[in-house]
Amino acid sequence: MNTRPIPTRTLGVVAYGANDLRITDIAVRDPAADEAVIKIAYGGVCGSDLHYWTHGAAGESVLREPMVLGHEVSGTVLVPAADGSGPRTGDPVTVHPATPGNDGRTHYPADRPNLSPAGTYLGSAARVPHCDGAFARLVTMPTRMLRLLPTNFDLRTAALIEPASVAWHAVSRAGDVRGKRALVIGAGPIGALIVAALRSAGAGEIIAVDLHQHALDVATKLGATRTLRADQADAIAEAQADVALESSGSHRGLASAIRGAARGGRIVMVGLLPSGDQPVPMSLAITRELELVGSFRFNDEIDEVIAALGAGRLDIDAVITHEFDVEETLTAFETARDASTSSKVLLRF
Rank of each mutant, 00 (worst) to 15 (best):
T151F: 05
R288N: 15
G186Q: 04
P281Y: 07
I267R: 09
V177H: 05
I207N: 12
E328N: 09
R29W: 02
T54F: 14
D303N: 06
R266V: 13
D231F: 06
G310I: 12
L347F: 06
V218F: 00
G133S: 13
L138H: 15
A318H: 12
P129G: 05
T335W: 12
L198S: 05
S248D: 08
T143C: 15
P92W: 01
L69F: 06
V326H: 01
A158V: 14
I6N: 00
H214Y: 13
R337Q: 14
T329F: 00
E60Q: 08
G47T: 08
A58G: 01
T220A: 08
A318V: 01
A262T: 14
G191K: 01
V14A: 05
G276F: 07
A237Y: 01
D277E: 15
L50Q: 03
D176Q: 11
E238C: 06
P5W: 03
S340T: 13
D303S: 15
E328M: 07
D231K: 07
N299D: 11
S250K: 12
S250T: 15
Q240Y: 06
L183G: 07
A187V: 03
N19T: 12
V79R: 08
R9N: 07
T99E: 14
A336W: 09
R112S: 09
G264R: 14
V68A: 12
T76E: 10
L115G: 14
E246Q: 01
S165P: 04
A82D: 08
L211H: 12
K180Q: 11
I258Q: 12
G179Q: 06
D325V: 03
A170F: 02
D277T: 14
S165M: 05
L63K: 02
I267Y: 13
S48G: 03
A134N: 15
L160S: 10
E162Q: 07
S256G: 12
A187M: 03
L198V: 13
G204M: 12
I6R: 00
G294W: 09
V268K: 10
D91P: 02
A118G: 08
T287P: 04
D154K: 12
A255E: 13
Y52C: 04
S165F: 05
L272K: 14
I161T: 13
L148E: 08
L284G: 10
Y52H: 09
G179P: 12
A167W: 10
R259H: 15
R348D: 04
H96N: 06
G47H: 07
G86A: 01
G104W: 03
L273I: 15
S61P: 07
L245S: 00
T99M: 10
T225F: 04
D242E: 01
A158K: 11
T143N: 09
T157F: 04
F135S: 10
D103M: 05
E334F: 05
R144A: 09
V195Y: 01
G17K: 06
R137P: 15
D303Q: 08
T24W: 02
A318Y: 06
D315Q: 14
H107N: 15
R297N: 07
T227N: 09
G59T: 00
T106I: 04
I6A: 05
I206N: 11
I286R: 10
L63Y: 09
A201D: 06
Y42M: 11
P274A: 10
A58R: 02
L160N: 04
V345D: 08
G271N: 11
